[in-house]
Computed example of a mutant assay.
Amino acid sequence: MLAVAWAASGDSHEVRLCVTDKRLVWLRDDAIADRVRALRLAEVDEVVARTGRVRRQGELRVRARTRRRRLRFGEIAPGPLRELAEALAQVLPAGAVRLPAA
């Protein structure tokens, strides 16, 4: 695993988000069924990581070729958000990841 962080998604308040060398994996802690979901990094077109102004929580938006909607993971602390974004920048093509402002 290259990076791991706690986040929230639209369908779950507690998500463990993991970046591996081949996949973006998220584990929904508050779900009974369909707890583990994954997206192959080969299917990812763009990743945008940004930090909110008010609560200083970060957000990771992932656009994939195989999904109609973008994946959004919010409520990520700034440090883990940068780690996730940098890990994705290592395994995705150049220019596919936009890092948060320092």
Rank of each mutant, 00 (worst) to 15 (best):
D11R: 12
S9P: 08
G74P: 00
A64G: 14
A49W: 00
G74K: 00
W26Q: 04
L92A: 09
A3N: 09
L99K: 02
R53V: 05
A42G: 10
S12H: 01
R65E: 02
A64Q: 09
W6G: 03
T20N: 09
V48Q: 03
S9D: 11
A42K: 03
E59W: 14
L27C: 01
V44D: 13
L92M: 09
D45Q: 15
W26K: 10
E86C: 02
A77L: 06
A89W: 03
R61S: 07
G10R: 15
A38H: 15
R98W: 12
V44I: 15
V19P: 08
V36G: 00
R35D: 04
S9K: 14
R40C: 08
V54I: 04
E86T: 00
P78G: 00
A101S: 13
A64R: 10
D11W: 14
V54E: 01
R53W: 10
G10H: 13
D29P: 00
L84Y: 02
S9T: 08
R23Q: 07
R40H: 13
G74D: 06
R82S: 10
R67T: 01
D21G: 05
R35M: 10
A38Q: 13
V48G: 00
A89H: 04
A96Y: 10
L71Q: 09
L27Q: 10
A33P: 04
T51V: 12
A77K: 13
D11G: 11
R40L: 11
L2Y: 14
G58E: 06
R53A: 06
A49L: 01
L39S: 13
V54G: 01
S12L: 03
F73P: 00
A102M: 08
G10Y: 08
E46R: 15
P100D: 15
V62T: 06
V97D: 09
A42L: 08
L39A: 14
R56A: 01
L81P: 05
Q57A: 12
W6Y: 11
R28G: 04
T51C: 02
R72D: 03
G58A: 09
A87Q: 07
L88M: 06
G95H: 04
E14Y: 14
R37M: 10
A42P: 00
V4I: 12
V62Y: 04
A101V: 14
R69Q: 12
R72N: 03
A85Y: 09
Q90K: 04
R37P: 06
V4F: 03
A3K: 02
V91Q: 05
I76V: 13
T51G: 03
D11Q: 08
V15Q: 04
G58S: 08
A85N: 01
L88D: 09
V4C: 12
E43I: 11
W6K: 14
H13I: 10
C18G: 05
D34Y: 10
A102T: 12
H13R: 15
V4K: 13
L39N: 13
R55H: 06
W26T: 07
L88Q: 02
R72F: 05
A94K: 09
I76R: 02
W26E: 05
S9W: 06
M1Q: 04
A8E: 07
R65S: 01
A102I: 08
A7W: 07
L99M: 15
R82V: 14
A31T: 01
V25M: 08
V48N: 02
A33M: 04
E86K: 05
P100A: 15
A94F: 08
E43W: 13
R16D: 03
T51W: 10
R56C: 00
E46A: 13
L24M: 12
A89F: 01
R35L: 07
